[in-house]
Write a protein that binds this DNA or RNA. Sequence first.
RNA 1: GAUCCAUUAGCUCAGCUGGAUAGAGCGCUUCCCUCCUAAGGAAGAGGCCGCCCGUUCAAAUCGGGCAUGGAUCACCA
Length: 578
Amino acid sequence: MTDTGKQLTKLVYDALCAVCKDSNIDVDFSMDSISCEIPPKPEYGDMAFPMFAFAKRFRTAPVKIAAAVAGKISTPDAQVLVAGPYVNFKIDRKAVVQGILSSVASEKDDFGRNDSLKGNKIVVEFSCPNTNKPLHLGHLRNDSIGESVSRIFAFNNGDVKKVNLINDRGIHICKSMAAYQKFGEGKTPESEHIKGDHFVGDYYVRYNTWSQSDETAEPVAREMLVKWEAGDEEVRKLWTLMNSWTIGGIQETYKKTGISFDKIYYESQTYKSGKKAILDGLEKGLFYKDEKNTVWVDLAEIGLDKKVLLRGDGTSLYLTQDIGTAIARHEDWPFDRLYYVVGSEQQYHFKVLFYVLQKLGYDWAKSLYHLSYGMVNLPEGKMKSREGKVVDADDLIEELEQMAKDEIIAKGRENEIDDIDKAAEAIALGALNYFLLSTMPSKDMVFNPAESLSFNGNTGPYLQYTGARICSMLRKYEGNTDDVDFSLITGDDEWELVKSLGNFSDVVKQAGADYNPMLIATYLYNLAKHYSKYYHDYSILKNDDEKVTVARVALSKAVLQVLKNGFALIGIPFLEKM
RNA sequence: GAUCCAUUAGCUCAGCUGGAUAGAGCGCUUCCCUCCUAAGGAAGAGGCCGCCCGUUCAAAUCGGGCAUGGAUCACCA
């Protein structure tokens, strides 16, 4: 495609020069200034050259320039069209089709893989749950984005490490512990047959109701935190036990949603770090101390106020700790970039964090990114943990699975599918991940259970269904596609499909550059949509001419392959049957 | 008071570094199991792209202002 594009660009350039000569205008532009586009509709041709850029120079309307330029071009390779302000070409599609379909067939699961991030060491930190409650829908969005961008970076051949930092200490953890100590009566997740994270989460809720009616609750939690920091044996024991329950439960959820990490950090092990860096900075005069020995940073340089880096008693804060872990991480593995997948409400925090690291003289601080994502709201407003207005992750997944199962049975597909439970799980996960990733990360999104859980239309299951149909068709096809006459797949609808396949790699690159999985989701939806129309309008298996069948099957195989490759990037399980 | 983000169809969202008649899905009104899965396809209705200026041959897109909604801001994470 690019070769053809270059040839045509040269033709257009030469014609433009000729037009300049006729009008006595100096040629002060190069070939690079000519842009080449793919027209939005097939009837406009296959390649388009807009003439807008020359309107000013020529003091002529783009439409007239296009006509003049087109008049100067004659080539046996392509047909020239004037479409308003554009000079368009219809080209010989066969070679392009052959090129793209052959690459898909030979590169298979690696089709779309490229070197745009080769040599880049990239850390993606995401999820970062607390150990006092189970995951909710907001965490699922975080996980989904983190896992997906990691896969996209890796598909651009970046060297990716996924890390998690578990927030396992602090007053909120002590609250669930305090409630358990008071009301637990030695119960365990096993004895109550409850998933560990939910078990602990129930005590966190219990604490909140307790503290509302009894003012002795708060001192209990506070005292527990002091004991924890002092290393009190009994408190530590309880802490270890309850954390193991929660983390065990959360890991089950990770397993279910296809999330994994290369390394898991625990805040209890890192929360004291950063102190030394701050003191060093203080010595260098980067920060200042007040009369209470509190260490401050002045943020006037970046238009902000000031911020505490170290308490007067020498203890660390969230920011201090993040400074420490960032430094430690870079020492562990000198990354080229580090992405923090964290909600948009922490934009201020990261702005300050990056600034302080830069001030401390760490050059790599400019390679830190806050991959900020918006909140997941409910139609009636925000999710509020304390009021119990949250969409629990496990509950949501279970509900989706049940719906998928019902759907399979309602469609009478249970005999066609080998393992209904497995298929239902895959459909549920596909629906969930597609839903979470098809909105731009930076934007807030609304989760309307009734509408969001649909399996029709622009959804994950629609994509899975498109793939499953192709598979089902291929199972019925006996022949092979070793010898394809590519000239038989040059119709407009087929051309659109092939063009789309050819774009996949660019979309993967763009998604990597923008760290935006939504681009993959949108791309896949459009591909599936084009294919569905094609599938409906064209007979693929039953044709008078066997050669036509071969060609169409080859095209279908290529679409299937690209769908598969894209699915892997946004966490949509591929299904051969559904 | 300040900073950041958002505002596109009834609802949920696309629209890339400005360019050909503003696009999907859901919902609504119709039509299609002709072959390979109807979890599908086709058609229709539905838009001052929040408002006002500006830059440009060209603005949903860029800049400024305003309005509305949200997030954040001095020792919570």
